[in-house]
């Protein structure tokens, strides 16, 4: 009789645990502001491991209603995430600048171009190309910043040209 009671209590305890598992399916709303609210609620309740997926879903919501103000909405969401300790400041900067800034985060580095960038030139350019497609999404499709995207595209080509020349000069031993 006592054993049965213990089993029932244990089952009840486990069931109560199961019901506390947060729902991390992601924001359902197609409206960006509402989707951000939903995401913030879920992230604050233990879904922070799904941050990448949430961010992607929010970008999708932004694409559904593209406007310049979306930039601010994403910035505020990332600042909130940083304040909540879900992201470090550097991570928040990365998430924002990769999608909404003209400059390329792929070009971060503390060593000089001859010694570090040139030996990895192809990889750097490949990473920049991928980042450019993220900028296309963030600048062009989410926040309608056509000029910003055009400048980023131009910058990509300028970096490609300048790196080609610089690396040729670094390699030449005349």
């Amino acid at each position: 009789m006592r054993t049965n009671l213990i089993i029932i209590l244990a089952a009840l305890f486990l069931a109560s645990c199961a019901s506390n598992t947060p729902d991390c399916s992601g924001p359902q709303s197609r409206n960006l502001a509402t989707a951000i609210d939903e995401a913030q609620g879920a992230l604050a309740n233990g879904c922070h491991a799904h941050f990448d997926r949430y961010y992607d879903t929010l970008l999708g919501a932004g694409e559904g209603d593209p406007k310049p103000e979306n930039k601010r909405a994403f910035s505020e969401f990332l600042v909130w995430s940083s304040d909540q300790g879900l992201l470090s400041t550097r991570q928040a900067q990365n998430y924002y600048n990769r999608y909404f800034n003209v400059k390329f985060m792929s070009l971060r580095g503390d060593y000089n171009n001859c010694s570090h960038t040139c030996p990895n030139k192809q990889k750097v350019l490949f990473d920049m190309e991928r980042e450019l497609s993220d900028k296309e999404r963030g600048l062009l499709k989410v926040s309608l910043d056509n000029k910003g995207y055009y400048r980023a595209d131009q910058l990509y080509h300028e970096v490609e040209l300048v790196l080609e020349a610089t690396c040729t000069a670094c390699a030449a031993a005349r």
């Binding site: 971060r108 570090h116 750097v124 610089t166 690396c167 670094c170």
Partner: peptide
């Protein structure tokens, strides 16, 4: 550009 600059300063 090669020795005095990092990729970030070059971009800037």
């Amino acid at each position: 550009l090669g020795r005095k600059m990092t990729p970030w300063t070059l971009q800037e």
